[in-house]
C-alpha cells in the first residue's frame, strides 16, 4: 500500500479538521470528495508531509514520515500540487519546473529531459520559455501540475487541480491522471464529482473530518438511487451520503 493511515487526526486549536481517518490505497486514482471545510485539504497536507498529524498512524510508500530519513525518501518520490499554488513570477515555465526537479533530488543528467517531458505533458511546450507572470490562471495551474509530476512520483497529491482549467483542459487532465494512476497512487481532492466519475477508481467522501463513504464511483452512484437531489447520478449519491451523515 502506498498510503496507509489509522485513526489519523489533525487538530487546529479546538477544531478537529481531520478526525480519525482510516485510509488504505495502492496504485490508482483516488478521489477525495467533500463540502468546504470537510478536511480534504488538511488530510492532503498531512499526506504531503507539510504538517504532522496530531495523532494516529500514517505510512506513505511503506515508510513512517515522522522519521528524518524516511521523510526524505518519501519527499523524493512525492509530487504535490497545493490548493494555492505559489510561484515566482520572474521564472520561466522551464525554470519553475526545473527548480522543483532539483529540489526533489533528481539526478542532474535526468533533469532536462524530465522537465521537457513534464512541460509537454501539460501542454505548455510552446510556453516553455514564457515568464510565469505572463500566463493565464489555467496555464499557471498546468505549470503547477508539471512541477508535481516532473520527478515521476510514486505518490501524487492534487488539491483542486482542475480549478481554473477550461472544459477541454479538464478532459485532458483526467486522461493524464488516469495514465499516471497506472503506476502511481494519485489522490485528487475536488469539489467536482464529474472529475471523480471520469478518472477515479476509488473515492472517499469526507464530512466534518471523517470519511463518510469509501468505495468505487459506481458504489457512490448506487447510493443515490431514489434520491432526488442532484443532476447527475454521482451527484445524487454524493448528496444522499451527505444527507445521511448530517442526519
Amino acid at each position: 500500500m502506498n498510503i496507509e493511515t489509522i485513526e489519523l487526526t489533525r487538530r487546529f486549536g479546538r477544531t478537529r479538521a481531520v478526525d480519525g481517518v482510516d485510509l488504505s490505497t495502492g496504485p490508482g486514482v483516488f478521489g477525495l470528495l467533500g463540502p468546504n471545510g470537510a478536511g480534504k485539504t488538511s488530510l492532503l497536507r498531512m499526506l504531503a508531509t507539510v504538517i504532522p498529524p496530531s495523532s494516529g498512524t500514517m505510512l506513505l510508500l511503506d515508510r513512517d514520515p515522522s522519521g528524518h530519513a524516511p521523510r526524505r525518501e518519501i519527499r523524493r518520490r512525492l509530487g504535490y500540487l497545493p490548493q494555492n499554488l505559489g510561484y515566482y513570477p520572474g521564472f520561466t515555465v522551464v525554470e519553475f519546473v526545473e527548480y522543483f526537479a532539483l529540489l526533489r533530488e533528481m539526478p542532474p543528467g535526468r533533469v532536462p529531459g524530465a522537465v521537457a517531458a513534464a512541460v509537454e505533458r501539460v501542454g505548455l511546450g510552446d510556453k516553455a520559455k514564457a515568464k510565469l507572470r505572463t500566463l493565464s490562471g489555467g496555464m499557471l495551474r498546468r505549470a503547477g501540475i508539471a512541477q508535481a509530476i516532473v520527478n515521476e512520483p510514486e505518490l501524487l497529491l492534487f488539491d483542486e487541480p482542475t480549478a481554473g482549467l477550461d472544459p477541454e483542459q479538464r478532459v485532458e487532465f483526467r486522461s493524464l491522471i488516469r495514465e499516471l494512476g497506472q503506476r502511481a497512487t494519485v489522490v485528487v481532492s475536488t469539489h467536482l464529482v464529474e472529475d471523480v466519475g471520469a478518472a477515479c477508481s476509488q473515492v472517499a467522501l469526507m464530512h466534518q473530518g471523517r470519511i463518510a463513504f469509501q468505495g468505487t464511483p459506481d458504489e457512490l452512484t448506487a447510493r443515490g438511487v431514489g434520491h432526488g437531489v442532484g443532476d447527475a447520478p454521482l451527484e445524487r449519491g454524493y448528496s444522499a451520503i451527505l444527507a445521511e451523515a448530517r442526519a
Binding site: V50, R72, R75, R76, Y80, L81, G86, F100, L103
Partner: peptide, 13 residues
C-alpha cells in the same frame, strides 16, 4: 518563500 507548500514538501536541500 514565493512557492508556499509545494516547496515545503520537497527534499532536504
Amino acid at each position: 518563500n514565493p512557492f508556499g507548500e509545494s516547496e515545503r514538501s520537497t527534499g532536504f536541500r
